[in-house]
Amino acid sequence: MEPWPAVAWVIITMVIADWMETAHTRDFTENDIIYLHPSTTPYPGGFKCFTCEEAQDNYECNRWAPDLYCPKDARYCYTQHEINLDGNTVSVTKRCVALNDCLSTGCADTDHEGHRVCTACCEGNICNLPLPRNESDAIFATTSPLSSAPRPPASHSLLTLTLTLTLTLLFFRQV
C-alpha cells in the first residue's frame, strides 16, 4: 500500500483541527479583513467603517457589519464601547461620522449602574476594528492634520513646559 493516502488523511485532519480552533475564537482580527476584498469606490477617497448599533460584543459587531461605503460627508469611523464594573462589554456601536461627532472622544462614567462609556474615532478604511477600553485607547486618530478643528489652547503651554523642564534638567546635569 502506498504511503500517500495516509499522508493525505494526516493533512486533512490537521486542516480540520485548525479550522475548528479558528471557528471557536471570539476575536475579529486584522487577518479577517483580508477577506473584505476591495471594490470600486462610489466616489474618490471613498472608504468603509465597521457599522453596528448596540452589538453584544466587538466580534458580533465586526462580523455582521454591513459592507457599505460611508456617505461623502462622513469622513471618520466612530466607536462607542459601553463597559460594566467587571470590565465586560455591555454594548458596541460603530458607524461613519462627520468631524463634529469626533471632537469629544474619551471615557466617562454614565449611570448609577457604574457603566463606563469610551468613544474613539479614526480616519481610514475600516480603521475602527479595536475597541476603546480606557483613556489611552479612546482617542481621535487622524492621518492628516485637522486644519478646521479648534486646537486646544493648552498645547502651547504644554510645549513650553516640556522645553523648560528639559532645559532645566540639562542645566542641573552639567552642574
Rank of each mutant, 00 (worst) to 15 (best):
S136R: 15
R116A: 02
C122Y: 12
P132I: 04
H156A: 14
K94Y: 06
G87N: 02
P66C: 05
R173E: 06
T162D: 10
A149M: 10
N88E: 15
D86V: 03
W64P: 00
C70Y: 02
C107Y: 07
C127E: 05
A154Y: 13
D67H: 09
S155A: 10
H81V: 05
S147Q: 12
R75D: 13
E135L: 11
Y69S: 08
A138D: 09
G114R: 12
Q174L: 09
P150N: 03
L159T: 06
N62I: 00
L170C: 09
R133I: 14
S147D: 12
L68A: 12
P71H: 13
V92C: 01
S144D: 10
S155D: 13
L129Y: 01
H115R: 15
C121W: 10
I139P: 00
Q174Y: 05
T93A: 06
C61M: 06
N100C: 02
A65W: 05
R133T: 15
W64H: 08
W64I: 07
N88W: 12
S157F: 15
Y69Q: 08
A74L: 06
L99V: 04
T160A: 14
E135C: 04
C96V: 01
A141W: 01
V92W: 00
E135G: 03
P150A: 02
P150W: 08
T164G: 11
C102D: 03
C77H: 04
I83G: 05
L170I: 13
P66L: 06
C118Y: 04
H156P: 01
Q80A: 15
C122V: 09
L131C: 00
L161S: 12
L68Y: 07
T110F: 13
C122L: 12
C107W: 13
T110H: 07
A65H: 02
P130R: 09
P130W: 00
K72L: 11
R116N: 02
D73H: 11
L103C: 08
R95S: 06
D101P: 00
S91Q: 13
F171T: 13
P152S: 11
S155W: 13
G87C: 01
C127K: 14
Q80F: 12
H81I: 08
S136V: 10
I126A: 12
L99W: 10
D101E: 15
P145E: 03
E135N: 05
T119D: 08
T164F: 10
L131N: 03
F171N: 11
G114Y: 07
Y59I: 02
A108G: 11
W64N: 14
N84G: 02
A65Y: 01
R133D: 11
C118F: 02
G87A: 04
V92N: 00
T142V: 07
P145A: 06
L165I: 14
F171P: 03
G124Y: 05
C61T: 01
V117L: 14
A120R: 12
C107L: 11
A149D: 04
A149G: 04
R116T: 13
L161K: 14
L167F: 15
N125P: 04
N88S: 09
C96W: 05
R151F: 09
L169K: 07
S155V: 14
S148Q: 14
A154V: 12
E82R: 12
P132C: 05
P150I: 03
I83F: 11
T89F: 00
C127I: 05
L158Q: 13
S144A: 06
